[in-house]
């Protein structure tokens, strides 16, 4: 046991099982500088244990249970999926009372297969349905002026980081593109460009939350779930002509 070991080993030895415990105790009895250091280390631990225990507000548990019950009710109810025509081909749009939850481009794999794919991604049941007016209006509005009504799109089940990244992407002006790094900086995580890339790749509501306006830092379109041609086509519809694929 050396003096320099005390600081590193102190916490480990507090549990009592470390083989060097007795050596440390013997050393402490004969080394005043280590005694002082030991007092300080124990003092830090003591100060932290003295912090007052704060009781949660009484309303917290009822709020949690209410939230859980809402989650259960919501999980049991399937999303509806409607097929809607668009300038880039038919779209499958999933929706529920809270808004549009998923948009998928038709991959010519058949309705049954597409519904199964959407259900897997949403992790709940889906049923085919006719598009109500608010759904078809939202899609139509996107292709008309490329700015949907975001109150009709439900991304509440995504993590706060995912939601922040998609909202930042929605701030990119129509006809322009920005890099993954730009989105990361906008949401206060400048080192998270790759994580932003993951969010864009998993975007459940492409087009409406415009992940297609996010490209790599050199201006290349980089990637798109439905292929770079589709990404370029959507950007062209918005007035942006990509020079790099």
């Amino acid at each position: 046991m050396r003096c320099c070991d005390l600081e590193a080993l102190w916490d480990e030895i507090r549990d009592g099982a470390a083989p060097r415990r007795e050596h440390m105790l013997a050393h402490l009895r004969t080394c005043p500088p280590c005694q002082e250091m030991y007092e300080q280390l124990e003092g830090i631990a003591y100060c932290l244990t003295c912090l007052p225990v704060v009781e949660p507000p009484q309303s917290m548990v009822p709020k949690i249970l209410e939230h859980l019950h809402a989650t259960v009710r919501s999980a049991r109810k399937p999303d509806c999926v409607a097929k809607i025509g668009s300038p880039i081909g038919p779209l499958y749009v999933a929706f529920r009372d809270t808004g549009i939850t998923y948009v998928a481009l038709d991959r010519n794999e058949g309705e049954e297969c597409t519904l199964e794919r959407i259900g897997r991604r949403l992790r709940r049941g889906v049923v085919p349905a006719q598009a109500p007016k608010w759904v078809s209006d939202t899609i139509e509005a996107f292709f008309r002026h490329h700015k949907p009504n975001y109150e009709r799109i439900d991304i509440s089940e995504l993590t706060p980081f995912e939601q922040a990244a998609l909202r930042a992407a929605a701030e990119i002006p129509v006809g322009q593109v920005r890099s993954y790094g730009w989105v990361a900086t906008q949401i206060g995580a400048p080192n998270a460009a790759r994580a932003v890339g993951q969010v864009m790749a998993r975007n459940p509501v492409p087009l409406l939350y415009p992940c297609h306006r996010v490209v790599d830092s050199s201006g290349h379109l980089h990637n798109y779930e439905y292929g770079l041609d589709v990404k370029a086509r959507i950007l062209e519809l918005e007035g942006y002509v990509s020079v790099r694929r």
Binding site: I13, R14, D15, G16, R29, Y46
Partner: peptide, 16 residues
């Protein structure tokens, strides 16, 4: 005492 006061009786507390 919260801390060991007596060198002859150094306690190493287990965090409770």
């Amino acid at each position: 005492s919260a801390l060991a006061q007596n060198l002859g009786d150094y306690r190493l507390t287990v965090p409770a």
